[in-house]
Design a protein around this nucleic acid. Structure first.
Length: 342
DNA sequence: CAAACGTGGCT
DNA sequence: TAGCCAAGTTT
């Protein structure tokens, strides 16, 4: 805690003890680096300064503020939970871990983080940093990829957490993991708990934590259509409200399951069959986009198309060039949008 | 419990 | 280049 108080970074969410602001920061920081979060955090709180402002916003507006940050269910769950706080708790985040834990998008880590940082309650906040630091300090060799392992670290933290300043204790452990006890090349000579570290004592700090590997990404190929009608507007599809990139907007895509699915005759018949749109698909490829997600890879073959119809299929909308920027697109489709706007 | 769920930076 | 990693949660 002494090390943390002296060495901690100045970060936007450390300038306020407003539980709402702590909450927003903790959701954004899930699986996301500090440097990535900062600009999103500042913009988000400018747009939605209070639980009330977020509760009353349009979901599309919330997603737009999250555009490019990833894991978009975080944004939708956060707004849903804030609505609950607004309705059930009068707009104030409850000062009780059991109630906090029930909020959508708030799991064991975030419960501990909000409880300790915003309310000074001595609850463990076990994230990847804490498991790395403690696996080294205590030479714990359990596989941290397994859900059950988190409980081992929570039990260890409960034994030593400060009841005077649980906020500095939890944040200090995470800050230590971020700045000193790093995944590779940990700066042990600068570490304030080097003397207590069993892994350092035995020279095995680089072997910890033990973490099993995840399965590799799977490839999906799509023909992606930039469909423009006579007044210049583009046809944009809103993704379903569940699953991958839920609620985001994109250029319509047809999956290529076999080689012939890339032909314009196939594309045209598919669009006619699914949406009743008569399309003239160009034979040239406008651009290609390749994108790697956490668990899958997209290869997009983008082609331009024209249509004369005024019909608007379900879950689609015609947008002007300017309006394209008002909706949240996933990164691969941002690349296409950027080409059209340049 | 394993897998789904984004993105960008680093090795 | 391919894989790993980052203040995890939900299904």
């Amino acid at each position: 805690m002494e090390w943390f108080r002296a060495e901690q970074r100045q970060l936007p969410w450390r300038e306020s003890k407003d539980p709402y602001r702590i909450w927003v920061s903790e959701i954004m920081l899930q699986q996301t680096k500090v440097d990535t979060v900062i600009p999103f955090y500042l913009n988000f709180l400018e747009k939605f300064p209070t639980p009330k402002a977020l509760a009353e916003a349009e979901e599309d507006e919330v997603l737009k503020a999250w555009e490019g940050l990833g894991y978009y269910s975080r944004a939708r769950n956060l707004q849903s939970a804030v609505k609950e706080v607004h309705e059930v708790y009068g707009g104030k985040v409850p000062n009780d871990p059991e109630k906090i834990k029930k909020l959508k998008g708030v799991g064991p880590y975030t419960t501990g983080a909000i409880s300790s940082i915003a309310f000074g309650i001595p609850e463990p906040a076990v994230d990847g940093n804490v498991m790395r630091v403690m696996s080294r300090v205590l030479w714990i060799t359990e596989d941290i990829a397994r859900p059950a392992t988190r409980k081992i670290f929570e039990a260890a933290i409960r034994e030593v957490i400060s009841h005077e300043d649980p906020s500095s204790f939890n944040q200090g452990l995470m800050e230590l993991g971020a700045l000193i006890c790093t995944p590779t090349k940990p700066k042990c000579l600068l570490c304030p708990v080097r003397e207590q570290c069993v892994a350092f004592e035995n020279g095995v700090q680089e072997e910890l934590p033990v973490k099993s590997k995840k399965s590799s990404t799977k490839l999906k190929k799509y023909t992606t259509l930039v469909i423009q009608r006579e007044d210049g507007k583009y046809l944009i599809e809103k993704r379903p409200s569940t699953g991958l990139l839920a609620g985001l907007y994109q250029f319509p895509m047809i999956e290529q399951l076999k080689a012939t699915d890339a032909r314009s005759t196939y594309i045209q018949s598919e669009i006619d069959r699914e949406y009743g749109l008569a399309l003239e698909v160009e034979s040239d490829i406008f651009t290609e986009v390749h994108h790697i997600f956490s668990h899958l890879k997209w290869d997009l073959e983008v082609r331009k198309a024209k249509t004369a119809t005024q019909k608007t299929p379900e879950n689609m909308v015609w947008l002007t060039t300017e309006e394209l920027n008002q909706f949240a697109f996933p990164v691969p489709h941002q690349k296409i949008r950027q080409l059209l706007l340049s």
